[in-house]
């Protein structure tokens, strides 16, 4: 019998888990499924939760694996959208004719401080939501779920250079968004 405490605590972090899953899967039904599987696995495997790490950290690590499984299954069944060649969206305007920055990048400060600031992760989430779906999928597989680049290319049937281009665009867009909505706004 799962302890009512654990069940209750898991229920409390359910919305966080759901948001996390939605960001990577962009599909409500699929996100509900993986979160459900995660909660069940968490209840069944409660002995694995020693209380050393935070409950949320532990649940998110289970969720990551569930999402990875889901993506792998999807790519086998061919249901993942193939990332197509995107229009030549240009970050060229950031540079002048001689290849220098038009506007030099700003000092974002010490990551240890910035990441602790209240509200930072809400803005980051907003910025990730604003990424086009395919770009977001490649980027979260790489950075949130920790896939190697070669593995992503293989799973999504992309050429390596296409993978790098997509990841480049994701990073540049997130940088732009964070600059505008977080660093400039403070």
């Amino acid at each position: 019998m799962p302890s009512p405490d654990l069940q209750e605590s898991l229920e409390k972090i359910r919305p966080t888990l759901l948001r996390f899953a939605m960001l990577q899967l962009r599909n409500e039904a699929a996100a509900e499924d993986v979160v459900q599987e995660t909660l069940l696995a968490a209840l069944e495997g409660k002995s694995a939760f020693s209380g050393r790490s935070q409950l949320k950290t532990w649940a998110v690590s289970i969720l990551r694996n569930k999402i990875v499984d889901h993506l792998r299954r999807g790519s086998r069944e061919g249901t993942l959208p193939i990332v197509d060649e995107q229009g030549d969206e240009d970050f060229d305007a950031l540079f002048d004719g001689t290849g220098h920055w038009q506007e030099a990048p700003g000092d974002w400060g010490d990551p240890a401080v910035v990441l602790e600031q209240r509200g930072f992760y809400e803005v980051l989430e907003l910025c990730m939501k604003a990424l086009p779906e395919q770009v977001a999928r490649v980027f979260t597989m790489r950075e949130v779920l920790g896939f190697e680049t070669e593995e992503i290319c293989k799973e999504l049937k992309l050429s390596s250079s296409n993978c790098w281009v997509v990841l480049y665009r994701a990073r540049m867009r997130l940088r732009e968004c964070l600059q505008l909505r977080w660093f400039d706004a403070r």
């Binding site: 990551p111 910035v114 990441l115 949130v144 990073r171 997130l174």
Partner: peptide, 10 residues
């Protein structure tokens, strides 16, 4: 910083 932030997501 972006990489560190994402790795600690959510």
């Amino acid at each position: 910083l972006l990489r560190q932030a994402i790795r600690r997501f959510p």
